[in-house]
């Protein structure tokens, strides 16, 4: 094994015009087969600096998993350039494997019929993790992920949440520099989700582990990721801070007011529109970028106000709008 390649911490994960084209063959008629090209990833470029947590989101079939598979060396790109920790995943898959940890939310990387403890023992020897480091990492994972009672249970008997925690621990025993998480909180209950998120946050803070996660749960993004990348139809449609996503998506905040009695819709406050009326309660939408204070003042001045609250925009809707704004994509 040579020495580690020189890595650029500002571009720890580096993609340059990455492409993946699948040839799909379809039966068309009795003997004829139609060949069709599917551009699952269609020219994606981004850089992730060391130690960042990035959310990678998009609708089903957008190309998220395909990107992750290329970043781990499972799939070979059809075009473009790709480096992870200075390593080309296509050429040095097994060498890269020592530097990365991968958690697939939908399927386990553990051995189905073996107790967790045996799976971890095997991981230790496969990755040749030194004893002291293995013990320290085990202790930490067992403690923070609450695995103590589960170590002697065969993986197939674990609940989804338990298995996910077990999988995360297995992906981290060899101290990877990069952690890929594909839907890490899918199907978990609220407590398990919180536990997983807390653990990832600590890991990133203490070890500086670079994390790339795909998710459908936008709370994951809100609580973990400083940066979001949105992919659709194999292209990057947004790359930046979470707040910026609201601006791009022209999202709206919602002022919910409870009036003393049922009144006609509040249509005389500039910059707002009535979204819904339900008895004495009314929902007023206004651009997310605007301050709520003058609007609240204007309403309070003209209407008998009992109570009010401001709701932040739902990212899911923001993203939906982002897609809707790009017809033809």
């Amino acid at each position: 094994m040579g020495k580690e390649p020189a890595t650029d911490d500002k571009a720890f994960i580096e993609l340059d015009g990455l492409e993946k084209v699948f040839q799909v063959r379809r039966r068309a008629g009795l003997l004829r087969r139609e060949r069709r090209e599917v551009r699952a990833v269609d020219g994606i470029s981004f850089r992730v600096p060391r130690g960042e947590i990035v959310g990678y989101i998009g609708p089903n079939g957008a190309g998220k998993s395909t990107t992750i598979k290329m970043l781990t060396g499972i799939l070979m790109p059809s075009g473009g350039r790709l480096r992870v920790a200075g390593i080309d995943p296509t050429r040095d898959r097994t060498r890269l494997a020592r530097r990365i940890g991968v958690v697939f939310g939908q399927r386990t990387t553990l051995w189905w019929d073996l107790p967790l403890r045996d799976s971890y023992g095997l991981v230790r020897r496969m990755y040749r993790i030194p004893d002291a480091r293995y013990r320290a990492n085990m202790e930490r994972c067992v403690d923070l992920l609450d695995l103590g009672d589960l170590l002697d249970v065969p993986v197939r008997q674990l609940s989804l949440g338990q298995r996910m925690r077990g999988d995360i621990a297995a992906a981290l025993l060899h101290d990877p520099d990069v952690l890929y998480l594909d839907e890490p909180t899918i199907g978990l209950d609220v407590v398990s989700k919180a536990k997983v998120r807390g653990f990832l946050r600590d890991l990133n803070a203490e070890r500086g582990t670079t994390v790339l996660l795909t998710t459908h749960d936008l709370t994951d993004i809100e609580q973990l990721c400083g940066r979001v990348m949105v992919i659709d139809h194999g292209r990057l449609v947004y790359d930046g801070a979470l707040d910026g996503l609201h601006k791009v998506g022209e999202s709206e905040r919602m002022l919910v007011v409870d009036l003393e009695r049922e009144l006609p819709p509040i249509d005389d406050v500039p910059g707002t529109r009535v979204d819904r009326v339900e008895g004495p309660r009314q929902w007023l939408a206004f651009p997310a970028a605007r301050s709520a204070a003058p609007i609240v003042a204007a309403v309070a001045e003209r209407y008998p106000l009992v109570d009010l609250s401001v709701r932040e925009p739902d990212i899911e809707q923001v993203i939906a709008r982002l897609y809707a704004d790009r017809p033809g994509l």
Binding site: K69, T72, G73, I74, R93, T94, R95, A97, R98, I100, V102, F104, Q106, R107, T108, T109, M126, Y127
Partner: peptide, 14 residues
């Protein structure tokens, strides 16, 4: 077929 083959490819072992 069941997709678990991918998990073999991310380990540092043939």
């Amino acid at each position: 077929r069941d997709g678990t083959f991918d998990t073999l490819l991310v380990r540092p072992v043939p």
